[in-house]
Design a protein around this nucleic acid. Structure first.
Lengths: 339, 339
DNA sequence: TATTAAAATGTAACTTGTTTCATTTGGGTG
DNA sequence: CACCCAAATGAAACAAGTTACATTTTAATA
């Protein structure tokens, strides 16, 4: 690797002048500037990014913790993050944690070792190891989708999950459904509580019973959708409408309903959440909640930027709007088969 | 940020000893080691990763250029890369290029500025800008899926796309099909040429005509599948079997065939490529080629590792095996409707 | 107890750029 | 031509580690 000293030797100037010619060209006379530029080209010089960062103390990078890169919803958020980060001169380091605590700890600690200046968490847990917890106190961090559990002072951006749950319930009730099932994703998260309580609140208002046995699930995967349907449809009076906590679950659910010879939506209505890319192209196309994932990513970077530059945050919590997309996986109850 | 000097002050030893106590503890007496460890804890010290890297001249990172993070096939490769990289102590920097040249240049140049020690390219183009091309000559780089165009000295890992194309053709011919269509992804890539010529070679052997008008496409997207079907089914004698160059295209194709009131596979058989996650859960489940994407990622890291450590490569080209998964989007020709 | 090799530790140089402070150069004015 | 301020440049300190080399300490042997 050619260094700045080599360039300075070729150009016949000091290393300080080379540095200035590249970083603050207006501080250098046109003649020297040209000499330096020529020398740079001749030497094939590229400044060592590490050296610059170690001197300035800023890595100009942010690390993003993603529980699962396969999740199409997260991908949209990431796109938003990357585009916004680039806008303000930051590089994004993607940490695919695969839900593993050790991996998460490791990526998070990048922010403690000057490898990154800030952190965006897409999961709901506090990403630092117990060892690092103390140090991490004052780190710039924002979370998207979920609120950092037991560390409520970190700013976060999320959907109005409660209202979305209500919207889905209203949608299904308007089709005449009265027997509901739900397949949840990760339990013990704010998202879970909000979506569920929103959904339940409407049922309660309408005096519709929703026994605990009709709530199953545990992870945001296709497999969970399959398992969930198997469980729900075992009941003597199975649900005629199923609320899946994300589109992956819904895809699995619809697949399994078909395997069990139920027609969707004729026999069972299914609704999802997130509006991932394929939802629209499934058969039937999925009724779901569209989240402004991209915008959420952008917002996250904006907030993080302010934190990294010690600027005051306007607010520590950002609630984003959603849209209910009524497609064809939900429909009117089939009075003949729903006894 | 607390530095190593602070720790050395607390522990009452030199900074060299602190460094040794942490990096090569066997070189330090147990007593001092403990003193240092205590001081580290007291100071809340984490070594500055940038400083370490700048001194050792190694970032222990590799950058991966992904044309499109949304592509489920790439994701599998990335998983393999990340797992293998972690194994040998490297961090993965994901660069989502979104097919944009400037972004690609920027991420690629990380390897020229000591931000990364090596590069894995998932696209087929030479990722450096013209300016950097010279410097990039001897950079550790391997490509997965595609061969770096016009720079054939870089090692690469790919599928036997030619044979896979043949396998799909045989599969469809065995069902009695004789009128074929194909919806390609990115033209002008080795993958395109290999899959197509493999497919065509079988048709030629069987004296089946495959006019140019039956080959459409241009990108690996759902939308391309939709467009492609619209185009192909316009013909007086439309195909009864369509070879989609990846699963996304196939998803779009099936969706659009259904919109045009064709039954899959009764009226038209559709085959895909890649075996992404949802393929299995589509309706009908997709007949496709399974690529060992994860293993390809692992292999890529292995090769890159050798290059980064100046070890001889066993071979500069790695061909991976595939599996034809016969599911339900392909089936026997329907003699009554295929006139 | 003296000798000596091995182990432990410290000093200072080194990695590469940036930046402060001092010095030199340049051009305009009196 | 001397003077002065500003612009341009250089020397050296700095960021935060690692490491070669020198020095001190320890422990074992004679």
């Amino acid at each position: 690797m050619t260094s700045i000293r080599k360039v300075s030797a070729i150009a016949g100037v000091s290393i300080a002048t080379v540095s200035r010619a590249l970083k603050t060209p207006e501080q250098v006379s046109p003649g020297t500037r040209q000499k330096v530029l020529d020398a740079v080209k001749e030497a094939g010089y590229r400044p060592n990014w590490l050296a610059t960062s170690v001197k300035t103390g800023k890595s100009k990078s942010i690390v993003v913790l993603v529980p699962n890169l396969l999740n199409a919803f997260f991908q949209r958020i990431i796109e938003g993050i990357e585009s916004a980060a680039q806008e303000c001169g930051y590089t994004v380091l993607l940490g695919d944690t695969q839900g593993r605590k050790t991996l998460e700890n490791e990526y998070a600690s990048m922010v403690l070792t000057s490898r990154a200046d800030g952190l965006i968490q897409l999961d709901h847990c506090f990403p630092f190891s117990d060892n690092d917890a103390e140090l991490a106190r004052s780190i710039p961090m924002v979370s998207v989708g979920e609120r950092i559990e037991s560390q409520h002072h970190y700013p976060f951006i999320h959907l109005d999950n409660y209202s979305a749950g209500r919207a889905l319930a209203h949608h299904l009730i308007s089709y005449g459904h009265v027997r509901f099932g739900a397949i949840a994703g990760q339990i013990q998260s704010q998202i879970y509580r909000d979506r569920l309580s929103g959904f339940k609140s409407v049922l309660a208002e309408e005096n519709i019973d929703f026994p605990d046995s009709m709530l199953v699930g545990g992870s945001y995967t296709i497999e969970e959708g399959i398992r969930g349907v198997n469980e729900l449809m075992k009941h003597k009076k199975p649900p005629t409408a199923i609320f899946c906590f994300n589109d992956d679950i819904a895809i699995g659910a619809i697949h399994q309903l078909r395997s069990l010879n139920y027609k969707v939506p004729k026999d069972v209505s299914v609704v999802g959440f997130d509006n991932i890319r394929v939802s629209e192209f499934m058969h039937p196309p999925l009724t779901t909640i569209d989240q402004p994932a991209y915008e959420m990513g952008v917002k996250a970077v904006e907030m993080l930027y302010r934190m990294m530059h010690n600027q005051e945050l306007l607010r520590t919590r950002e609630i984003m709007p959603f849209t209910l997309l009524e497609r064809h996986s939900s429909g009117p109850i089939n009075r003949s088969t729903s006894q």
